[in-house]
């Protein structure tokens, strides 16, 4: 299945060069892949995965192990950041 994967701020360094320009990478994943599996595949530090959104909706840390991604969804992750 095709999933859109986005990493922002300091995490964008974990994307391959072709993804860094726009913070986005198209992923071809096996059905049933969880958010946690994607995090591990890209070796993202756990403590840096503060804000995890799937199609803009927050996924709590406790659900990352079980939340499977679906065809066409967008997974976006930020480290701890703030603004205002």
């Amino acid at each position: 299945m095709q999933v859109t994967f986005k990493l922002f701020a300091m995490l964008q360094d974990y994307l391959p060069p072709e993804g860094r320009k726009d913070n986005v990478l198209a992923l071809d994943l096996a059905d049933g892949t969880t958010i946690q599996q994607v995090i591990e595949r890209f070796a993202l530090p756990e403590k840096s995965c503060k804000l995890v959104l799937v199609d803009g909706t927050f996924v709590p840390p406790a659900e990352r192990d079980t939340r499977t991604l679906k065809e066409g969804e967008t997974l976006a992750i930020w480290p701890p950041i703030a603004g205002g």
Partner: peptide, 25 residues
């Protein structure tokens, strides 16, 4: 020691919110 005030804000400033708020509609 706080990741937001110690790292996130100095590195990217408040502008880092643009993609966050946009992604969440």
């Amino acid at each position: 020691d706080n990741a937001v005030t110690g790292q996130g804000l100095p590195a990217y400033g408040t502008q880092v919110l643009m993609n966050v708020i946009n992604e969440m509609g």
